Simulated scan of single mutants.
Amino acid sequence: MARKAFTEGEPCWVEATVPDEEAARRFYGELFGWSFAPLSAVGHGSLARLRGRPVAALTRKPDGRMPTTWNLYLATRDVADTLERIQRAGGQALGGPTAVGDFGLRAPAADPGGAVFTLWQPGVHAGFGTTEEPGAYLWAEVHTRKPARVDAFYTAVFGYGLTTPTRPGVDGAEPPAVVDEEGDTLAGSGDAERAAPYLFGLWTPEGAPLDPEYAVLGRCVMGPEEPAPLPPYLLTYFEVEDCAATARRVVELGGRVRFGPESTPFGELAVVADDQGAVFAVMSGTADPGEGAGSGAAEGEGEGSGDRESADGVDRGESAEDLGEAEGAGATEGAGALVEPGAEDGWEGGERGEKGNGS
């Protein structure tokens, strides 16, 4: 689906920061069929394109101590004003604003739970050239241990509305709340089936109906089954034609399967890591990305934290140390290196001939 503009707080771009940029081009070119052009504005990095439209950036980490991760950019009309709102709402401004030529302004930030994201105020580059098609961005979720604080934070900063959709077979009656030692309200009761829907929330843009159809971002609660060293994070989803085949291809390319593939009521889901440790999700057969992607991950992410095998017999066990590195603990520098428009936006960029076969 071609994209032209983004609402306040809507995910508008993704960027992988990795130790080896050339290896990342090989991996994602083969996996998603991306082609690449240089990010000429700063002299390093690669713009990923899908059939000529910009879909992501790949950049080399300037410091080996920084996390290997996928960074999510959220659109804003005024990055400086949004940074002030972030701090007033209990989040952190981790840098910026920084001009990226005339493409736009960026600034890294963190929510009260510790999940890191990047603000993007567009100049000539708004963000994704296409979404919600195989090989392109599909969805994203904040995974947190502080749902009440995080819900209030994103509402205050971006004006999000929150809805907690029920799952098939579960009615809409809210279970008794449990308050943790820091005063954060957690969904839960002795009836896990009734409590489960409230562990996942959907955020819709300001003024939009509180309906999954209009959701732009999800929120999942990290349960006690997830390793304590694993920090809060944002999980990026890409759409694929065949989730199981893509998961097998990830392993063939040197990556790992953390969870799945597993069928959900909304599509087939797998959470994977590339050959350098950056974690992302792939999903196929989605009827509604906002409703489907989140519901699967809310169940699956916790299950995938231990040593298990997928339905295809792929060993996806990882240590807590591996998970912490992959998800990007405490990324306070370099979150978001560059987003550059594609040639269709009037910018030149030579193809590198590294287009893969896709999956």
Score class of each variant (00 low, 15 high):
L72Y: 02
T82G: 04
R53S: 12
G52N: 05
T131M: 11
L138E: 08
V142F: 14
G52R: 06
D78R: 11
A140F: 00
V55E: 12
W70H: 07
G135D: 04
N71K: 06
R77W: 01
F117K: 00
F103V: 03
M66N: 14
L94P: 08
G96L: 01
D111L: 11
L74W: 07
L119Y: 08
G95L: 08
F103G: 03
A140R: 10
W120T: 07
E132K: 14
S46E: 10
G135L: 03
D81W: 13
P147T: 04
Y137A: 04
G64N: 11
A57L: 00
K61P: 14
A99K: 14
P108H: 14
L58C: 06
A93L: 08
G90S: 09
R88G: 12
V116E: 06
A110W: 09
P54Q: 06
L83H: 04
P122E: 05
L94C: 11
V116C: 05
H125D: 01
V55P: 08
A89M: 02
L138W: 09
A56Y: 08
P67M: 12
G129L: 00
A126Y: 07
Y73V: 00
G114R: 07
P108C: 06
P62Q: 02
T76D: 08
R106S: 13
Y73H: 01
E133V: 13
D102A: 14
D63G: 08
A107V: 03
L47M: 12
V100P: 10
W120G: 06
R60V: 03
A140Y: 02
D78W: 07
T68W: 05
L74F: 15
W139C: 10
D78N: 15
R145S: 10
A110G: 07
T144I: 09
A110M: 05
H125G: 01
L58T: 01
L74Q: 05
A140H: 05
T69N: 14
H125Q: 09
A56I: 02
L74G: 07
V116W: 12
R145H: 09
A75R: 08
